[in-house]
Amino acid sequence: MKTPTDHITLFTEISVWLTGFNEAELLATGMLDTYYQALQANSSQDDFSYFFKAVEIILHQNRNDIASTEKAIASMLMPVSAYNGIAGSIITMWYTGNWGNTVISGQAYIQGLVWDAAQTHPPGAKQPGFGSWNMPPL
């Protein structure tokens, strides 16, 4: 039986693989615990534990091999039929702050990584300052 700490570690590691953002970028959002809890609250116990078992195997078996890890994620985690689409839901959380169509919290919206990926900021927050839009992003 995995302890919650182990699961959070696995959640962090797999989130890096799923989102394309590194651990420092993910931690900087301050949302790790919130999203882990949202995942737990919105998934069935079975999906949740089978998902983490699969994650553990994927990360262990393909240690340090990017191509094979990605291949395993693509075939074992990304299909919507896998664990009720948990992998996609994790990406959605990190990118948009949503679980499905529900905004997890105001802070989750603000910390959405889609805005970083698009070299901008969430509308209504993290404002870049007067006139900044006149130039390409930094």
Binding site: T19, G20, M78, G88, I91, T92, V114, W115, A117, A118
Partner: peptide, 22 residues
């Protein structure tokens, strides 16, 4: 861009490829 994210996920994109695509 929310719809771009959901479409990309539905198409199986994840990780660095997703970030680059967005």
């Amino acid at each position: 861009p929310g719809s771009d994210v959901s479409t990309a996920i539905a198409n199986g994109l994840f990780g660095k490829a997703l970030r680059t695509h967005i």
